[in-house]
Simulated assay, not measured.
Amino acid sequence: MNKQCYLPTPAYTKYVCYPEFLGHYSNFPQHAERRSEGLLNSYNLHLIFAGEGYVFHEGERISMGRGKGFLFPRGAYQQYGSDLSQPWDVRWVHFGTGLPLPLLEEADQSRGYFFSFDPEAGLESLFEEMYRLGTSYETRYEPRLSALLYEILITLLQNSEPQHGAVSQEVRHSIRNAANIIHRECAGAWTLETMARLSGYSSYHFLRLFRTIMGKTPNRYLTDCRLARAKLLLVSTGFSVAEIAQQAGFAQSSYFIKVFRQFEGMPPNQYRLAFGTTAN
Results as ranks from 00 to 15, higher is better:
E138K: 14
I152V: 13
S146W: 00
L222C: 15
A196Y: 03
P162K: 05
T223G: 15
A166V: 12
A166G: 02
F210E: 08
Y141L: 06
H173W: 10
Y137C: 12
H164S: 12
C186Y: 01
H164L: 08
A187E: 15
I154H: 09
G165W: 03
N177L: 06
K216V: 10
H205A: 08
Y201S: 10
L198E: 01
L153N: 07
R197Q: 13
A189M: 11
M195A: 08
Y137Q: 12
L148K: 08
R220W: 03
H205C: 09
Q158M: 03
A196I: 04
W190V: 12
A147H: 05
L198H: 04
L209H: 05
S146F: 00
S202M: 02
P162W: 02
A147G: 06
S168M: 05
L148C: 09
I182L: 12
E151M: 06
L207V: 05
P218E: 12
K216W: 03
A166S: 13
L192C: 04
Y201P: 08
Q163M: 11
S174D: 00
Y221G: 12
S146A: 14
T191M: 09
S202A: 12
T155F: 04
V167R: 01
A147Y: 02
G200Q: 04
E185N: 10
I182A: 04
L156C: 03
P143Q: 03
T155L: 13
F210M: 09
L157M: 08
S146Y: 00
E151N: 12
R211A: 13
V171T: 15
I175G: 06
L156V: 03
A187Y: 11
R220S: 15
W190L: 12
R197C: 07
I154N: 06
L145G: 05
L192S: 13
Q158T: 03
Q169D: 08
I154T: 15
M214H: 01
A196C: 07
A187H: 10
G200A: 08
L207T: 13
R208K: 14
W190R: 13
W190T: 13
Y141G: 09
I175E: 06
A179Y: 06
V167Y: 00
L222S: 14
R184M: 14
S203Y: 00
Y204S: 14
C186G: 02
E151S: 14
L192M: 09
V171P: 00
R172D: 01
T212W: 00
N159H: 13
I181Y: 06
H183S: 14
S203T: 13
R220C: 07
A178P: 02
Y201E: 07
A189L: 09
